[in-house]
Nucleic acid binder design. Sequence first.
DNA 1: ATATCATGCAACGCC
DNA 2: GCGTTGCATGATATC
Length: 583
Amino acid sequence: MKRELNEVYYGGNKEDVHVFENVNMVPTDFDPMDDTDIWLNGNFSNDFTSLQDFPCMSSSSSTSNSLPTEQSDPFSSWAVQKSDADEQNFDTISDQECLNVMDLIDGDHEFLDPMISFFHSGENQQQKEQANDEQVSIFQGDSELALMFLEWLKQNKDNISAEDMRSIKLKCSTIESASKRLGSTKEGKKQLLRLILDWVEQHRLQKKQMREEQSLQNSAPLNFSNPNACFYNASFPDSSPVMTGPIQGYIGDLYSNGSLFAPPYNQTMSGSATSRSWSPSQFTMVTASQYNPFPDNDSTNNVTIPDQPLFSAQYDPYQVFDGNSERLARLGTCATKEARKNRMARQRRVPLHHYRHQTQNQRQISNEKSVMMGGKINNCAMSRANSLGNWVYWPCAAAAPPIAMVPLADTPQALPMERPAVQSQKHQKHGSTDKRQACKTEKNLKFLLQKVLKQSDVGNLGRIVLPKKEAESHLPQLETRDGISIAMEDIGTSRVWNMKYRFWPNNKSRMYLLENTGDFVLANGLQEGDFIVIYADIKCGKYLIRGVKVRPNGAKSDSTQPAKKIVRKIAAVDSSPFAQAVR
DNA sequence: ATATCATGCAACGCC
DNA sequence: GCGTTGCATGATATC
């Protein structure tokens, strides 16, 4: 199992990953786990991991933390020295090989500070040990560093206590490696401290996230058997949360870009039982898009990835990486659930204002798309509503109907009416009142259907036959012939008519009817040839109806034949661009 | 040929 | 007798 783990998480890479491969480069990303492994501190296994170190100069640790042993902590068993990966050593690391963070930082502790010795380049092990014996703190002689740390601690007091800090262990070799590349200068120390603190912070946040996700996943266990699932190890014995990758695409100077104390916006998690190390690609350099900081790994590490920044154009856009920058494969379905969980958990914590703004906008859009109008939503209708933003309605019953009246233009009856398209254009051309009104109404109302009233519709039957297609597509789906009651608000009078929407079986088809329309027809003085138009108020979730006269008040169509022609002509232009624009 | 829809009309209930 | 309900049918459009 150990070997499996090692291969899974390290891809059998024999080489240490150097934090700062290029000494000339300013290291911008730091991962104390770089060439190390994480194993949990015995006393704070739920909070922090220790930073395993290679056997190097030992630094005595006076922390009260118990040694993580395989018995006490199963995680310690998979601690591996990557430099010895060929031997597949899974030695547990003793406290002596690690350095307590507080020990490192706090000069009051009686612990050796290996860093101080690491800042002396070219020193051999003996010299380093000698330096350690001097018990010199990283802060010694540099109040600026101490202030920096105190400031950091202050800012993170809610998440990280001094006690917590004492539970964190850093691998000596990691610090050594980093400090070597950072140099022994004041700036180098500062940089190292920043990186360490940043890692601690990230780690803390990750731990919290892990706990959250673990609680979630206790009810929905992960499928560890999925070989594509983020390199989860099927044989992994424990799903306890462990630290996974730090910051994704962590680019730029931690301080200069103000990201040091910033939450890990890009941080991703891999679930509860995921990779236990940070992959090399986490250390994206400033010029990571061009520079490969881990050239040694590319050929050997079949797990770790790309030196390029995540989602770089050079990469397959469908290639997704988890927090460890581990390739999740080309996610068709791979890791989608996990990734989604991670994203959601991550997003919950993202305090970015712009992100909130984005989500708010999305939420608003989503709401507008998902409003149900008293029944089963009709996707077609809604999509059309959202795609057509230039439809209008006539707020006054005496105004023109929102339909294409082109075919009627040659009839006297059509003269009083204003063609909707023209009116719509007016809204565009002349702003002010009309435009505001149009904008306001465009947001709320959606045209559903219209019906040119027949004699039978305006008769004393009190029912209006509705066009089948429109009814089925824009009105609630009817399960039974009895239909449903629909409150129709009269747009002109704001009066609400309680109508019934139902259907009759007709041959193998249906006839859709709007019943209880008698009063409405009478109130609006509708006659044969007039229109009714039904809208949906998307925001309020109600239906609105409007009776539209197609002739001056008092006039009456002299025959039914023209009405028929009108119906047919309207139907003919119903799909015209003009009519669609109206809609 | 088939679908849609306007309308005729029979059945039924109520006054 | 009248109003309402529900179905049937024929005219028309569409495929």
